[in-house]
Design a binder for these strands. Structure first.
Lengths: 256, 256
DNA sequence: CAATCTTTGTGCACGCGTTCACAAAGACAT
DNA sequence: ATGTCTTTGTGAACGCGTGCACAAAGATTG
């Protein structure tokens, strides 16, 4: 889910549920694939399978957009592609800036899926003066000093943060002050933003930890053994004092 | 959310809600920061602020783990770090393989947050023979041919897919067949996996599209105009065949 | 034109997640 | 000890999202 601001019970303008919005890109991708294969129409059942969701859910999702299907036949692929694109705002051009051109930032700049749907990398920005001018993915890196000017000159409203955690909030503040109202954050930090600014975060570490949880549970189910350790051991654990360093936070060394 | 398999109403083993599990890494990160600053205890209010969530939610989340707080005082930081780490399965070592060492794969291999919490990059795998042997992030890349052997020799249960979309399903199948039961997928495709295998996906393109949706809505709200058009007009609009939608755009070949 | 078949669109019920609000628990002062 | 103050842990209400199941709509066939 978005780490964004308050949900949005207010607006109500075109009340499309957030969960539905999150699935629209999925449908769009499946539809685009069908379109490329020149498939004219598709049933909710087929499309749902391609998108990896339940067909009832898909139909309900589409019902929020309007009645775009034909009973007994299905949905017109081209038409749906267009409708969903429009609903998502992909019929217009979205200039984005990527801040922090390290390994990840460079990977993002090179990512094809970026440009494919109305998103255009307007600028790459990095704090390292040595990077300035160096082209990455064919785009010259610019220095952080010019951030505000870049945002304003290009009318950028979407920013991508791929800096180290320590710099993220500061970069975020400058982006927002310069007029950015949507942020995709790859830095492992919670960003504080004013109301009206949307933040979505992508956090590799968190995803892995969630997988580890399930993985552990799977393993634990087979050999039901170490369920809950008693209060005594727990109290001991409490004593384990801090030792490790900044980034290398070793997983809480087991209490002696 | 995980794009994984069926939810998990079954298991019920240690019934921690999925939503809570997804937040534990967030708490853990905030707690680790406090721990490094040698803060001994923290209240739900403070910790919630640091993690960017509501304090009631945080307390309820913790209540699923047990009663680890002290009323009138708060939570012992070290103790909580340990408990959450254990719950997430981070007290053990998780060898992971990264398949697809392009820009993104390389960025992932270099990502510090990876190693920081019990995750160890056991191997890098790529289909390009030219990559074989070349070190990335200090680890020599191995060829896809050896995938099964690498998985088995290292006891890998978590795989990261950073290949192009076209190769993802095939790689996934091989990973699963070799014994991997958790997959973090960066390729923009829906992966089909058998029951018992968890898949989480990270999709840059989708995140951007969701932001674009909200961005568009924000822009649309200022220039009111098209707020909620009444049912009648809506019905009429529906009929507007082959011309355009609200914001005036390309005629999307209406289904004849 | 009538009958049949396919597939959409949705009313409804259920369950999960969030939030409120407060009693219980403990710390701390007197 | 007793009282006050702080903060947790949770019961209960609410709202969102999901999935079922079916009526309505249209295609298609005879």
């Amino acid at each position: 889910m978005a780490t964004g601001r308050t949900h949005r019970p207010a607006t109500r303008s075109r009340g499309i549920p957030e969960a539905t919005v999150a699935r629209l890109p999925l449908y769009l991708r499946a539809l685009t694939a069908l379109s490329e294969r020149s498939v004219p129409t598709v049933s909710s059942e087929e499309l749902a399978a391609a998108a990896g969701v339940n067909s009832a859910k898909l139909r309900k999702d589409f019902s929020y957009l309007g009645s775009y299907g034909t009973r007994g036949v299905g949905y017109d692929v081209e038409y749906l592609v267009y409708q969903i694109s429009r609903e998502l705002g992909l019929t217009q051009d979205w200039p984005v800036v990527i801040v922090g051109i390290g390994n990840l930032g460079a990977a993002l700049a090179n990512y094809g899926g970026f440009a494919s749907r109305g998103f255009r990398v307007a600028a790459l920005i990095d704090a390292d003066p040595a990077m300035a001018g160096k082209p990455v993915a064919g785009i010259p890196v610019q220095h952080t000093d010019d951030l505000e000017k870049i945002i304003q000159d290009n009318g950028v409203s979407i920013g991508v943060i791929a800096t180290p955690a320590g710099a993220a909030q500061q970069v975020c503040d400058r982006l927002v002050a310069a007029g950015v109202t949507s942020i995709l954050n790859f830095a492992p930090t919670v960003l504080n933003v004013p109301d009206g600014v949307d933040v979505r975060k992508v956090d590799l570490s968190i995803e892995l930890q969630i997988l580890a949880f399930h993985e552990q549970r799977k393993a634990g189910e087979e050999s039901a053994a170490d369920t809950a350790l008693p209060a005594a051991a727990a109290a001991a654990a409490r004593k384990a004092s801090a030792d490790q360093g900044p980034d290398g936070d070793v997983p809480a060394v087991m209490p002696a």
